[in-house]
Nucleic acid binder design. Structure first.
Length: 851
RNA sequence: GCGGACGUGGCGAAACCGGUAGACGCAGCGGACUUAAAAUCCGCUUCCCGUUUGGGAGUGCGGGUUCGAGUCCCGCCGUCCGCACCA
């Protein structure tokens, strides 16, 4: 009998057999209960990394387990194939983004195949192919027809040297990543989706997602950011007279601004307002700037900082006093009007009433510009001066006229009521959630199916002319959008009037592609995006698995997109993901050479306690354990590991030790341990001689407790606990003497490990002479009578400290337990004849004696 | 800045509803087998004191509730993640 498991042979053999038998093809017409298991599809960067392996292994274990428990399982795979890296590669390596992407997909598919995942490859899709994005264009037009798509001006990061739009990640310290030029904010006319129409529904829907992690729901709730407050007007006291002439746009609505409209979630603090601040992009700021060079320069400066919220909120608070005053609606006091860099144009009205005593940003600003900081809320009703920290807690209103003495909530209501009665404001709900800007000024994305005509305006491409296919003949020699400068592509006739017109050259955000791929997996007809009836059979997805980094955007956009399709009458589903799991990253130690360069794990050798450079013997500095990344070189290639240990050992390691939601540190000794265990299993299976004599009740108990426990752990995705239980069972089997029970345990063990190490399990079954495939086998049945032990160990405590343990029959009455515990030698010695004051007995658990 | 999560041996961790802290794995130490090595098997392994029986301390820090706290409450400290054009 061979002692060593040969994974390379076994992996290939069983992968071929599963393929031939189409074992994992999902049947749309099955009568079994359905289970849709999905992992977030990968971006085809070129190579899969260990993080993918972990993600897909988890999904695979669940998919295989569900098959064993009688489900018809849909477990598909595809490629999130549009996006910037392909264009960067095109610029750097002079390859076409399509060529680069498709060859990456081929490589990664081969890598995934080697891991033996139970995937239905017949449903594979890539978002960069016209048969996918063409259907996406059709859906986009449906949304347009239903009023969910519109255009508006919005700011982008503009690199004035490269003449191109930059993503936030391409802006480093306010400068373009390639050119190093200071980035400007520039306004462009862009496409938006009305996600805000669904803000309430997206928020409400969260409460029904009981199989989502609470933290993700909370993150989405905060992101949607419902806040109720008062929108109201400050009259402008002294608008500059020359304003009318200076008005640059000629828009008559802007000719005579008389008020500044603000929104506040704290109308109760209105008597503490000491100034009003508006965003640099606020129309009034722009009007004033036209006539004030210093203000204009200040607004320019604001525009040059990044568009990211983190940049805006961490930079030093700065403002410009416009010299204009506004009038407090209650007191009539004149408050200075500032333009400030911390006011966001996109939130509320782009203008705020600033109450320094009760808002930290306002306080920082007020200290810097020596403005008053009157307190209006006090926890104890006393008027203590404000220090360096704004008071945002509950309390009683003071210094506040008619609301004095009220608590915060009552005061809010009172101010709103008065504003509404007097007609200068109204209670309003404001959302932090903004409409989804989907325009990207890039080539490698889904073309937005619209045509611009001088006469007819923006005209949708007729559906029978879809897909609008990306031109292949493009160059990336110069920056900017190749669609923009393509000689012919954008020149088309208007579908309405037939005159010469221009195609839209913006493409869709790749988050659109990933907002419905799970729908297309469930059914993919040629002539429409999906088949309603078939797709609805599979949706919602029972278990969706992916990284926490998608907690907000991808998951929220997909929830919105599904609602949008529902709104258009295309699908009867609103929530696409019934169950969600967010897994942790794979991390690795980092190494640095004496000259401070990062070293890859294979360049480093362990000598005793220390690490040295393998070639030179120089000492290596051991860095922190961090997320695997190319820049720190702390990566391992799944292919190399599979070559060395086979798919099963890698899969086993991915599931072992760390809880799946936490980070998993990759270690060479860890994968070695997994490899040793697969061999231990193999020895158990290959040495198994069938024994029909003798029962081993202890082993049977352990076996059935393990069957039950592993099933529950897999359902809960607690793979590390399932692994530990399998180790315990394996240890118990190895220690057990030959018996019919032991033979049964070995055979059953092959089924228990099958979802995790499927190749080994198939090989074991074949070796043991069992008919059929493990892939088609059922999960072993549990005998409930064997789940309970008949003896229990009772902890005997004196004053809460463990002094002894006694092993007794299960279910012993309290007084018996008390007697036995008092008689336990170490207990008797500790209490030393003293009379117990009190004895606490928890049946089958412990006895605690208080003296 | 705002929001969120996490903190238990040398390391990854487990611990049900508040009831024997450290299961299981890694690393380490000792031993068996071997000419030797690899592989494998057996034993030990939270820390401190003690020859053993045993005793003391211990779940980031400081308090509290309780017969009993890793778990509940209050206050700190530290680390990591997200923040709308990366996917």
């Amino acid at each position: 009998m061979q002692r060593r498991f040969n994974p390379l042979e076994a992996d290939a053999k069983w992968q071929r057999i599963w393929d031939e038998k189409q074992s994992f093809r999902a049947d749309d017409n099955s009568v079994k209960p359905r289970s849709y298991v999905l992992e977030m599809f990968p971006y085809p960067s070129g190579r899969i990394h260990i993080g993918h392996v972990r993600n897909y292994t988890m999904g695979d274990v669940l998919a295989r387990f569900r098959r064993m428990t009688g489900h018809e399982v849909l477990h598909p795979m595809g490629w999130d194939a549009f996006g910037m890296p392909a264009e960067n590669a095109a610029m750097e390596k002079k390859v076409h983004p399509g060529t680069w992407t498709r060859s990456n997909i081929a490589n990664m598919k081969a890598q995934l195949k080697r891991l033996g995942f139970a995937l239905d490859w017949s449903r594979e899709l890539a978002t960069c192919e016209p048969d996918y994005y063409g259907q996406e264009q059709a859906l986009f037009l449906d949304l347009y027809e239903n009023g969910l798509v519109y255009r508006k001006e919005s700011a982008v990061n503009w690199d004035p040297v490269d003449m191109t739009v930059l993503a936030n990640e391409q802006v480093i310290d306010g400068k373009g990543w390639r050119s190093g030029a200071p980035v400007e904010k520039r306004k462009l006319n862009q496409w938006f989706l009305k996600i805000t129409d669904f803000a309430d529904d997206l928020l409400e829907g969260l409460s029904g997602l009981d199989q989502w992690p609470d933290k993700v729901k909370l993150m989405q709730e905060n992101w949607i950011g419902k806040s109720v407050g008062l929108q109201f007007r400050f009259e402008i006291d002294n608008p500059p007279i020359e304003l009318e002439d200076a008005n640059p746009s000629g828009d008559t609505n802007l000719m005579k601004p008389r008020v500044i409209e603000v929104f506040s979630t704290r109308p109760d603090t209105i008597f503490g307002a000491s100034f009003v601040a508006i965003a640099a992009d606020h129309e009034f700021a722009q009007l004033l700037a036209a006539d004030d060079d210093a203000l204009d320069a200040f607004c320019q400066e604001c525009r040059q900082s990044g568009t990211a919220a983190a940049d805006i909120e961490t930079q030093e608070k700065k403002g410009y006093d416009t010299g204009v005053s506004v009038i407090h609606p209650f007191t009539g006091a004149k408050l200075p009007l500032f333009v400030a860099n911390f006011v966001l144009m996109d939130y509320g009205t782009g203008a705020v009433m600033a109450v320094p005593a009760h808002d930290q940003r306002d306080l920082d600003f007020a200290r810097k510009y020596m403005l008053a900081t009157p307190r209006v809320v006090s926890p104890d009703g006393e008027d203590a001066p404000i220090g360096d920290e704004a008071y945002t807690g509950p309390g009683t209103l003071i210094n506040s006229d008619f609301i004095n003495g009220m608590d915060v909530e009552a005061a809010k209501a009172a101010v709103i009521a008065r504003a509404e009665a007097e007609g200068w404001g109204q209670g309003t709900t404001v959302w932090r959630l903004r409409d989804w800007g989907v325009s990207r000024q890039r080539y490698w994305g889904t073309p937005i199916p619209f045509i611009h005509c001088d006469d007819c305006g923006v005209v949708p491409v007729p559906k029978d002319q879809l897909p609008v296919v990306l031109p292949e003949d493009v160059s990336f020699d110069i920056p900017g959008n190749p669609l923009e400068r393509h000689p012919t592509w954008k020149h088309v006739d208007c579908p309405k009037c037939g005159k010469a017109a221009r195609r839209e050259t913006d493409t869709l955000d790749t988050f659109v592609d990933s907002s419905w791929y799970f729908i297309r997996f469930a059914s993919q007809p040629d002539d429409k995006p999906f088949d309603k009836e078939t797709t609805e059979k599979w949706l919602p997805i029972g278990q969706y698995i992916g990284g926490i980094e998608h907690a907000i955007l991808h998951l929220l956009y997909a929830r919105f997109w599904t609602r949008a399709l529902n709104h258009c009458g295309l699908i009867d589903v609103k929530e696409p993901f019934a169950g969600l799991f967010t897994q942790g990253m794979v991390t690795h130690e980092t190494y640095k050479s004496p000259d401070g360069k990062w070293l890859a794990p294979e360049e480093v050798e362990k000598q005793g306690e220390n690490y040295v450079v393998a070639d030179t013997g120089e000492p290596v500095t051991l860095g922190r354990v961090e997320k695997m990344s190319k820049s720190k070189k702390n990566v391992v290639d799944p292919d190399d590991i599979i070559d060395q240990y086979g798919a099963d050992a890698v899969r086993w390691f991915m599931l072992s030790d760390s809880p799946p939601e936490r980070d998993l540190p990759w270690t060479a000794s860890g994968i070695e341990g997994s490899w040793r265990f697969t061999n231990r299993l193999w020895r158990l299976f290959s040495d198994a001689s069938e024994n029909s004599e003798g029962e081993d009740k202890t082993l049977l108990r352990k076996l059935h407790q393990t069957i039950d426990g592993v099933a529950k752990d897999i359902e809960a995705l607690s793979f590390n606990k399932a692994v530990a239980k399998i180790y315990e069972l394996t240890n118990a089997i190895e220690k057990a003497k030959p018996s019919a029970s032991r033979s049964e345990a070995v055979r059953t063990l092959a089924l228990l490990v099958a979802p995790m190490v499927p190749h080994l399990a198939e090989e074991a079954w074949e070796t043991m002479g069992t008919e059929g495939l493990v892939a088609d086998a059922a999960w072993p049945a549990v005998d409930p009578a064997l789940l309970v032990d008949d003896e229990v160990t009772i902890a005997c405590q004196v004053m809460g400290k463990l002094r002894d343990t006694i092993t007794v029959a299960k279910g012993l009455p309290k007084d018996e337990l008390e007697k036995l515990a008092l008689a336990a030698p170490n207990v008797a010695r500790t209490i030393d004849g003293a009379t117990p004051k009190k004895v606490i007995v928890v049946p089958d658990r412990l006895v605690n004696i208080v003296i």
